[in-house]
């Protein structure tokens, strides 16, 4: 059905007004600083000295041959490649277990959501203590089951997994709730019709649940990807990038370069390389997950 043009125009004007406050705020507090940062990335810019020298693409070319930066990117990708599927699967799995309403599922939903409510700073402090090789809760429990000890804080091959575990613990509950809402949006009669046709559970999941969860899934995956590739706070608080740089992720590296070594231009250039990479990944994801619902 087509709207008459007066109606459409009015709608358009209203839409812009609705978007306006958000647009102004973003333009001012996100995009303007971003543009500023972009110009900084072409300069040799010491954080504590505003007088900077234009160096063209020197920062960018330096970064592409900087093994530490490449390594930090690899750590971020490693983190993302594990966390995105594991956390999404866990969140969806939990949602499937408890999406139907009853007092029991309500209780479990509440419990699973509780880590979301704990501040990331608090959670990081806690996990640092819990992971301690000799005196942490984790190894006490593992010891009881005859396993361990696991040295999440001092073994360079494991430390990143410790950060992943913390990330999943903290965030899975949030995405579970998003999935619960999505699952409840699927009309029940679809399942009933499938049952009449003799579909198995697995068939129903693949043929009905997944396709109809697509929009939710897109949201979850996009947000998880961006969060994972930008992981910073737990790294800074739990391991400080160590041991032996094994948990130095891209954003942590950028922060170190910009604020500890005061090379703001170089650090900002690194951030824009990361920006382009994350942007490309997100665009690919959006294409792959293209949904019938337009945004």
């Amino acid at each position: 059905m087509k709207m008459n043009s007066a109606f459409g125009k009015q709608e358009e004007r209203a839409a812009w007004l609705f978007v306006l406050p958000a647009a102004i705020s973003l333009a001012l507090f996100t995009f303007y600083p971003m543009l500023n940062a972009l110009t900084i990335s072409f300069k040799e810019y010491s954080l504590i000295n505003p007088e900077a020298v234009f160096v063209g693409l020197a920062n960018y070319s330096g970064l592409l041959s900087d093994p530490k930066f490449i390594n930090s990117l690899l750590h971020s990708f490693h983190f993302a490649l594990v966390v995105i599927p594991v956390q999404t699967a866990l969140a969806l799995g939990l949602a499937l277990l408890i999406y139907r309403s009853s007092w029991v599922t309500g209780l479990f939903r509440t419990i699973y959501f509780m880590p979301v409510v704990i501040a990331i700073g608090v959670a990081s402090t806690l996990f640092k203590l819990i992971y301690n090789q000799d005196y942490g809760l984790l190894n006490s429990l593992l010891g009881f089951f005859g396993a361990g000890p696991v040295s999440f804080l001092s073994d360079p091959n494991l430390a990143l997994y410790g950060i992943m575990l913390l990330g999943v613990w903290k965030s899975a509950g949030f995405f579970m709730i998003i999935f619960v809402a999505g699952l409840n949006g699927i009309p029940n009669d679809l399942y009933e019709a499938a049952e009449v046709d003799g579909a198995t559970r697995a068939q129903k999941f693949v043929k009905i649940t997944l396709p109809l969860l697509r929009r939710t899934l897109t949201f979850v995956i996009i947000i998880t990807t961006m969060d994972a590739l930008k992981i910073f706070v737990p790294v800074a608080l739990v391991t400080g990038g160590g041991p032996a740089d094994s948990t130095t992720t891209a954003v942590y590296y950028i922060y170190k370069i910009a604020f500890q070594q005061m090379e703001m231009g170089y650090g900002t250039a690194a951030a824009f390389i990361l920006f382009v990479i994350v942007m490309c990944i997100s665009i690919v994801q959006l294409r792959l997950l293209r949904t019938d619902v337009e945004y």
Binding site: P33, M34, A37, I40, F232, I254, Y255, F275, S282
Partner: peptide, 16 residues
């Protein structure tokens, strides 16, 4: 709008 999600806030902190 979505692209604003991509940039880490630590980087725009000084300009902001």
């Amino acid at each position: 709008f979505l692209s604003a999600l991509v940039i880490p806030g630590e980087v725009t902190m000084v300009p902001t």
